[in-house]
Simulated scan of single mutants.
Amino acid sequence: MSLNSRRRGAELEDAILDAAWDTLIEHGYHGFTFEAIAARAGTSRPVLYRRWPQRADLLMAVLHKFWGSQPIEVPDTGDLRADAIGFLRNADKGRTGLMTVISAQLMEYFRETGTNFEELRDRLRRPGPLGFEVIVARAVARGDLPDEPRSRRVVNLPFDLLRNEMLMTMRPVSEQAITEIIDDVWLPLLLR
């Protein structure tokens, strides 16, 4: 590569993060090394170290780009049930394989750092209310639900059940499962 065609700035960072993502997916955290990523990105280890002094720093940058930066659209249909089902559909769309792979590929990271999936999620998620918290707040504002305290666990239960279904089946979640999560579990809890 000539000096004139040398990548810099955002172009170089994107190439590094793309290479790091591919390395993580193919080789897991064990193979997620500065050497492997630099070779795949066509750069040197010092270039990586200048931007991300620790491997965990680079991992967080990669996960922010490929996982945390893709918010799930929260529908606003004016109907609590329709919003909830729509949100689960949006959450499931294209994420089942990603969630399964990431969960498996990061087990060594969790062991090494003494952290867990919940702590990682909290580091990656954007500030503010979660999807179902928004859906419930809108329903309360419309008068569809009484304005009373609700456990955060109950409010966010559908997403937890969806994630469990994804990890257990490693397939997209069926429409039947999504409907059962909302109609048979969540709405009865909210409306009791």
Rank of each mutant, 00 (worst) to 15 (best):
D57V: 09
V62D: 01
P71R: 03
K93H: 15
S44A: 14
F32I: 06
L48A: 10
M107Y: 00
R51G: 14
W52R: 06
S69Y: 02
D79Y: 07
A137T: 09
T77R: 07
A139M: 03
D92C: 09
I102F: 01
A91F: 06
I85Q: 04
A91S: 13
N116E: 05
F110K: 07
A61T: 12
R95I: 01
A82R: 15
Y49M: 12
D147N: 12
Y29M: 04
D92E: 06
R111V: 12
G94F: 02
A38P: 08
V140I: 15
F110S: 08
F132D: 08
F66N: 10
R153C: 00
G86F: 09
D79C: 11
A56W: 05
F32N: 02
W67S: 11
E73A: 15
D144C: 00
A104M: 06
K93Q: 15
A61S: 12
L58A: 05
I135E: 02
A139K: 08
I25R: 12
E112A: 15
N116T: 08
R138W: 04
K65R: 15
P127M: 09
T96P: 00
A137I: 09
R51Q: 14
L106D: 05
G97V: 05
F110H: 13
T113H: 08
D147T: 03
T96A: 09
R111N: 08
Y29D: 06
E119C: 01
T115D: 10
P127H: 04
Q70C: 01
P129K: 13
E108I: 12
